[in-house]
Amino acid sequence: MLKFLTSLFKPEAVKPAAATSETSMLFAVVEIAPFLTRLANNPRFGLPEGLAEEIATALPHLDLHQRRRWQIEGAYDGAPAEFGIEVVMESGGEADVTFFTPQFAIEELNRELGAFDAASER
Rank of each mutant, 00 (worst) to 15 (best):
V14N: 01
F116T: 07
D63C: 05
F27W: 03
L36W: 02
A18M: 05
A75Q: 10
V88H: 13
S24Y: 12
V30M: 08
P48T: 00
E90A: 04
A28D: 08
L51F: 09
A58D: 02
E54A: 12
T101M: 09
F83R: 04
R38D: 15
S24R: 11
N110W: 15
L51V: 13
A119P: 04
F100S: 15
A56C: 10
I32S: 00
E12V: 04
K15S: 06
S7G: 09
I32E: 01
A79M: 08
I72Y: 01
A17S: 14
L47P: 04
E82M: 07
F35C: 03
R67Y: 01
D96W: 06
P60G: 07
A115I: 11
F116V: 06
G74A: 12
A19G: 06
G46I: 06
L51C: 07
E108R: 09
A17L: 13
D63H: 11
P80W: 00
P16L: 04
S120E: 12
R38Q: 10
H61W: 11
E22A: 08
F9V: 07
F100V: 08
V14I: 01
A33Q: 03
I72F: 01
N110G: 13
A81Q: 00
A40L: 12
D117K: 06
Q71W: 09
F35Q: 02
F35D: 03
L59T: 07
K10Q: 11
P11D: 02
D96Y: 10
V97H: 00
N41C: 15
A81W: 01
K3W: 14
V30S: 12
R69I: 02
T98D: 04
A52P: 03
Q103G: 14
M89S: 15
F45T: 02
P60V: 15
E12F: 04
E94S: 10
K10H: 10
L109E: 01
A58Q: 02
S91Q: 08
V29Y: 08
V88Y: 03
L26G: 01
T6E: 06
L51E: 04
F45R: 01
L62G: 03
E86Q: 13
L59E: 01
L39H: 14
R69Y: 06
F83T: 07
E22F: 07
A19F: 02
